[in-house]
Design a protein around this nucleic acid. Sequence first.
DNA 1: CGAAAATTTGACATGACTCAACTGGAGTGG
DNA 2: CCACTCCAGTTGAGTCATGTCAAATTTTCG
Lengths: 193, 193
Amino acid sequence: MNTKPLLEHLVKEIDLSKEEQSFLLTQINYRKYLKGQYILQQGDVCKHSNYVVSGCAKMAYVDKEGYEHIVMFATTDWWLSDLGSFITQTPSDYNIQCLEPTEVIQFTQQGEEELLKNIPKFERLFRHKLQNALVSAQKRIILNFSHTAKERYLLFKKQYPSIEQRIPQYMVASYLGVTKEFFSKMKNELLSE
Amino acid sequence: MNTKPLLEHLVKEIDLSKEEQSFLLTQINYRKYLKGQYILQQGDVCKHSNYVVSGCAKMAYVDKEGYEHIVMFATTDWWLSDLGSFITQTPSDYNIQCLEPTEVIQFTQQGEEELLKNIPKFERLFRHKLQNALVSAQKRIILNFSHTAKERYLLFKKQYPSIEQRIPQYMVASYLGVTKEFFSKMKNELLSE
DNA sequence: CGAAAATTTGACATGACTCAACTGGAGTGG
DNA sequence: CCACTCCAGTTGAGTCATGTCAAATTTTCG
């Protein structure tokens, strides 16, 4: 029932047999978070890899001065975890917090291992997931170096047209790596151009 | 002979049988590049995934203004490719150029597929490789937002102590995302602090 | 040695940040 | 229904980090 979206999503990608599907179901958990709740808090070990069924969450790093830097947003069909903490089971440097009521399907590290062992197709799927994530992370590094905040903002709007409306603007600023004040001025200038 | 370092490196990580080793050898190629040579040029398809045996190379993006932005350096034991171009076999946005005479072992995309199909251990190994790369890419995104160029430079020195001596300083500047002029002034200030 | 490449220096320009004050909703409670 | 507060967003003045451009200096290497 609640896990249906995941199955549908996965079946599209790797075409699971009935047996594989039911095995998968033994390894996952459905969970619902309220707006504002934390899926992961800085300092805790990241116990779950999360597949977002609905809602919206952010992953962020809070620096020593207390400023928050948003690493990514995740909505339906996105995967979300602090990979570093998840695979090594060491305390995380990141927060994951829900910006809306959010439904997720969770894998524990053991569950993921079991899955990979028993259904090798998953190796390929997860590898693809990682590849895509790495490619876009590298792009973002270069983007931040080679473009002004204004340009980055325009690209962000193109790439995530739906997200901007759903969240407070100061979070968009944080994702782009600028202050909310500068972001506000920037948007103004864009209007009068 | 020339492929020995790769085997040794891999055997340490995944413990290959004799048969697996000899199969591996059928899927790889050894190649030597001179200083200055390109392993990959912007616009070409990335035909190979490269394991660096010796030497040093950089992966970089040249923007429309002609400025070069360095994504990463690779020395012994690093893997190097434009993953996006490699997996989709579409033209690359990056250059990979040797900064020293460099020996690499190359996998084609097909070769890599074969390897993964025939020696499932490789799935795990490659997944780990990707995980680590992704974790550090995400860290670098945040680092660039939350730290000044000076701080980033000090971290770079700690993390890659051997690289700074081997390459022209303007490339370090490019990796850090600052101009060579600013980088020069910055280092001066650090001395008198 | 001489030419090209790398690095440094200085004057000036600008993107982006800080801080503080202000505006304008969206509750909330009396 | 008003007064109050809280939070997001805006605005402005001043500052700082970093960029630009042009010239001078040093290093590298044929």
